[in-house]
């Protein structure tokens, strides 16, 4: 169909059965995924988007937590590769009827899916599931643990704009404590040789986070100084009312991204946000909408390409598919 489809099988093989997190991946694994994703970007911008890489394969999206963008992104990625995609959400699942996670996994496993994408509110739940199924599993976000495809798409956006990851200074700001996006990004960026700074009040930083190879700041002006990339994280509403920070107002005053705070970063610093945004809490609306700086919508676009790449490498490792594309 396109030039890339007839490409020779990649010389490097993805040596993992599942994608449960960034931790444990090598530099080569990550580069492989990013390179492959890169090749999908142009394809996704064409009118005819469909390939048959996953033809005959079944992808189940199992979301135990509400999600619009990630679920849709995986659904599109699967469909564009030719897979049959089924979406299951908590409201329609038998979890509500008291079935345990493992029973749900065994039930789905019996239907012979090839790939399961799982999002779950509990850290470690996706790994637990992976012990009880035969298909490939992609972690679509588990608790505060990891969200590997988000980190990969963030990396792809950065690489496209800066041509590299190594040596860049990336500031991740906001609710680090509860953020799986932050953890996956910390792993990925440090593996790829970038410098990572975290900026947050101490109440939103988990214990011993500095041991993950990052610099920690409590002040945006210091934290953003000379940053190449500013990554903002969403602050959940229930955490703004005196439990972790005194108020949304005070949080925005000290940690909300404004032009004034951004001024200390590199003049061409990119602004990223995994979404959904709280405008006026962690980011000023004007900054979020600044098309010269904000790459927030590009993150969404490249998310599909990254998920196509993840699905492809895992599908290649499934029995009976080999390289016969």
């Amino acid at each position: 169909m396109s030039g890339r489809v007839s490409a020779e099988p990649q010389p490097f093989v993805f040596p993992h059965r599942h994608l449960l997190g960034i931790e444990g991946l090598s530099r080569d694994d990550i580069a492989l995924l990013l390179d492959l994703a890169e090749s999908y970007i142009a394809l996704n911008r064409r009118a005819e988007k469909k390939l048959d890489v996953l033809r005959g394969r079944t992808l189940i999206n199992m979301f135990f937590e509400s999600s619009t963008r990630t679920r849709t992104s995986f659904e599109l990625a699967g469909k564009r590769l030719g897979a049959d995609v089924i979406n299951m959400s908590t409201s329609s699942s038998s979890i509500k009827k008291g079935e345990t996670l493992i029973d749900t996994a065994l039930t789905l496993n019996a239907m012979q899916p090839d790939v399961l994408v799982v999002r779950h509110p509990d850290s470690g739940a996706v790994r637990l599931l992976s012990n009880h199924v035969e298909c490939a599993i992609i972690n679509g976000g588990d608790g505060s643990h990891e969200h590997p495809t988000q980190a990969l798409l963030d990396a792809l956006v950065i690489r496209r704009h800066r041509g590299r990851l190594a040596g860049l200074l990336i500031a991740i700001c906001g609710d680090i404590m509860h953020s799986r996006v932050a953890r996956s990004n910390i792993h990925l960026l440090t593996i790829m040789g970038a410098r990572v700074r975290l900026v947050a009040p101490p109440t939103l930083l988990p214990a011993a986070i500095e041991r993950m190879g990052v610099e920690v700041h409590h002040d945006m002006h210091r934290g953003l100084a000379d940053a190449d990339i500013v990554m903002m994280l969403r602050l959940q509403t229930e955490r703004m009312q005196g439990s972790f920070v005194p108020s949304a107002r005070e949080y925005f005053h000290f940690y909300g991204l404004t032009y004034e705070k951004l001024a200390v970063a590199k003049p061409d610093a990119l602004i990223m946000h995994p979404g959904p945004m709280n405008r006026g809490v962690e980011i000023d609306s004007v900054v979020a909408d600044d098309i010269t700086r904000s790459v927030i919508l590009e993150q969404v676009e490249l998310g599909v390409a990254v998920r196509q790449a993840c699905l492809e490498v895992l599908a290649r490792n499934l029995p009976g598919i080999g390289h016969n594309r």
């Binding site: 850290s123 505060s144 643990h145 990891e146 988990p206 214990a207 011993a208 986070i209 993950m212």
Partner: peptide, 15 residues
């Protein structure tokens, strides 16, 4: 235990 391990696993820690 509240620690680097808990942080990596994304589990809330007990100090």
């Amino acid at each position: 235990n509240e620690s680097e391990t808990a942080t990596r696993l994304g589990l809330p820690g007990i100090p």
